[in-house]
Design a protein around this nucleic acid. Structure first.
Lengths: 100, 100
DNA sequence: AACAAATATCGAAGAGTATCGATATTGGGA
DNA sequence: TCCCAATATCGATACTCTTCGATATTTGTT
């Protein structure tokens, strides 16, 4: 089913979310510090973090009043694998006249 | 800039488009045969093919009245690379207590 | 209990998306 | 030239997304 993969790609289809992912990977964990590095307000950040979490791309850990977010690298790897499979599932009849 | 990558991920964020990509890779090339394998009408297929082409994921070759579409594998590979970079750009301070 | 900090949720506005039926366009064949 | 097949475009509709300000919730601190 393509629906699940499509959902994950959708989570990656927003520039702010890609930026968030990279900040998280680089060591940011807390919404309260992310907010200073993004051109969006707090409710919007919360919305994007939820999108990422719902897609399985991040995991949330509650620490007192702070919420820490971590990237689920396995999910990213799974998407990479999907793309690679699509690329490689050729191998059959896709022969375009190779000018020979 | 994340905008361009986000655009490409957006092109992959629809199940029908993922299906189209796979059909194209597997040897389909013509809209007139794709249409029989998808649960959408002709204008919608045309719309999706345009989305994919605009995102640089496919290339169109006109052959008389038929239009042939080919997957730009380089674009897929570039997305894979982007995902891998995001995964690997850690290496610094993202140490979560590794239970040691 | 009162307050502050961090986050989530709500309601609304505006933009964008997917889909369709109808119609236009383009190219090949009679 | 006339018709057909393949595709694109248009206008409309319903839905989803992103964003915001305002407000609620949750937790730690005094």
């Amino acid at each position: 089913m393509y629906h699940e993969q499509a959902q994950r790609f959708k989570a990656l289809s927003d520039p702010n979310r890609l930026r968030i992912l990279e900040l998280l990977i680089q060591g940011e964990t807390c919404g309260c510090t992310l907010i200073d590095k993004l051109p969006i307000g707090q409710p919007t950040l919360s919305y994007h973090l939820k999108q990422l979490a719902d897609a399985g791309l991040t995991r949330r850990v509650v620490d007192g009043t702070k919420h820490l977010y971590y990237v689920e690298k396995d999910a990213l790897a799974s998407l990479r694998e999907f793309l690679r499979d699509v690329e490689h599932s050729t191998a059959t009849s896709c022969e375009v006249e190779t000018n020979g």
